[in-house]
Every structure is written in C-alpha cells, then in structure tokens.
Amino acid sequence: MEPSRSYASQEIEQQTSPIEPLKKPKIKKRKVWVPGLLLLTPILLFIFGFFVIPMLYILYLSFISTDNLGGAEAVYSLKNYTQLFSDSYYLSSLWLTVKISLYSVLVALFLGYPVALTMAKSSARIRGYITLLIVSPLLVSIVVRNFGWYLLLLPNGTINQTLMALGIIDAPLKLLFSEIGVVIGLSNAYLPFMILSIVASLYNIDPSLDKAGAILGASPFRRFFSITLPLSIPGIVSGCILVFSLSMSAYVTPALMGEPTCP
C-alpha cells in the first residue's frame, strides 16, 4: 500500500502549500531552457563526438584480444590486462613510474606548503603577484622548461660546476638522464598545482581559530601544528593525488630527462 500512501501525503502537501508561500521564493532566471540547450548544442556535440566517444572507444579496445583486432570476429577478453600484469618489463616500468611519482609528490609537498602558507598570510596584492609568478610558467611549453633544466643539470652544467667549485663533490653527479632528473623535472612542472590546491584549503580556515590559539598562549609553532596543518589536510591530500596522477601520466619530461623507460 506504499504508493497510495505517498499520493495521500502529496495531496496533503499540496493542500498545505498555499499556507506557506514564503518558504522558498524561488526566482527562476528563465522558465524556458530550450534556447539554452540550443546554445549548448554545438559544444556538446563536439565534446561527445571527439572526447566522450574516443575515450569509450579505447576502453572498448582494451578488452579486445590483440590477435583479432580489426578482424571480423572480435574476441572480448581480459588478455591485455593479464599480459600487462604478468610481463616483468611492464611491471618494472610501472614500479619505476610509481616510485618517481611518489618522490615528485614529496618534493612538491615540502616546497609547496610554505609557499601556500605565505600566500594565505599575505595581502591580496602580494598574493596576486605570487599567483602570477607560480602560474605563468605553466603557460610556457613544457619542452622549454625541460630545456632549462637540461642546461642546469648537464655534467658540466651550472649545478655540478657550483657544487664542484664549493668542494662538495669531486666528480660531476649524474643528474641528467637519471631518476633524479625526472623527479626534478616533474616536481618542478607540477609544483604550482600542489600550491594552488593547498592554498584553496588554507583560505577556508577561519582566521579567528589562529587568533584564539594565540590568545590562549600557544606559540606560532604550536598553532601551526595543532590548528593550521590539521585543517589543511584536505588540500594536501588533493594536491598530492593531483601531482601523483599528473606524474604517473607524464610523458614529455621522462622522455627528455630520463634514461630508463617510464610509461
């Protein structure tokens, strides 16, 4: 007897509704939305045709056995996946990718958090300048940024020469075409994303919490570890996930600065 009861309750609601018209004065921008859909048609068709369908298409291809690819009888199987996880070549490069991505996340986190904290504490003007400085490099092609690192990391490049002149090392370190090179390149490229996602969570912290801590006599050190850091964990987590996934899927930087294969 469920449906009849719900009808009854609906009727009651309808009857009572004229009594409370002030409840939610919902202002609609337009009652008809057909013209809006018309405006959206070109972009939706484009994204469906050239983004959604291609993505579904490779998902579909991944389940088809390679031998029959393009043949009349396609065989659905998980063979591609079992092959991926049983081949030692794929597995070792997958492990290397995970390792390099984790290092990049750590470097980005330790360098990015102080920047985010400084941005959250500065005035809007300085924050604007910092945002401009950290975001602008994202708009310059990744190959150009990698070339800059190449100059710095060469065996006789700036960093090795500086370290040798200071007497810290005797022989040049192998920075380029190594795991270190890829970690430097990736953490450098994705550091801005880490900063921006931490900043977003730092803005949401109520500043009066910090003041309350100060009034109660907590040192800046204590206030940071008991108030600011715990409350910014969502930003840290999302930043780490973002940088990790970006590093996992990076291609250009490992191709130019790495030596071993990374997918």
Binding site: I134, V140, V144, G148, T158
Partner: peptide
C-alpha cells in the same frame, strides 16, 4: 619559524622559475 617559511617559499618560487630564467 616564520623566517624559515618565507625562505623555503622564496626558494620554491625560484625553483619554479629557474628553468625559464636560464634559457
């Protein structure tokens, strides 16, 4: 503590910009 924070922040911003600066 504040000084260390600003020092690392400046270092990080230089780290972001340096590959472009040297080119």
């Amino acid at each position: 503590f504040g000084g260390l924070r600003i020092a690392v922040a400046v270092l990080a911003i230089i780290y972001i910009l340096i590959p472009l600066i040297v080119v």
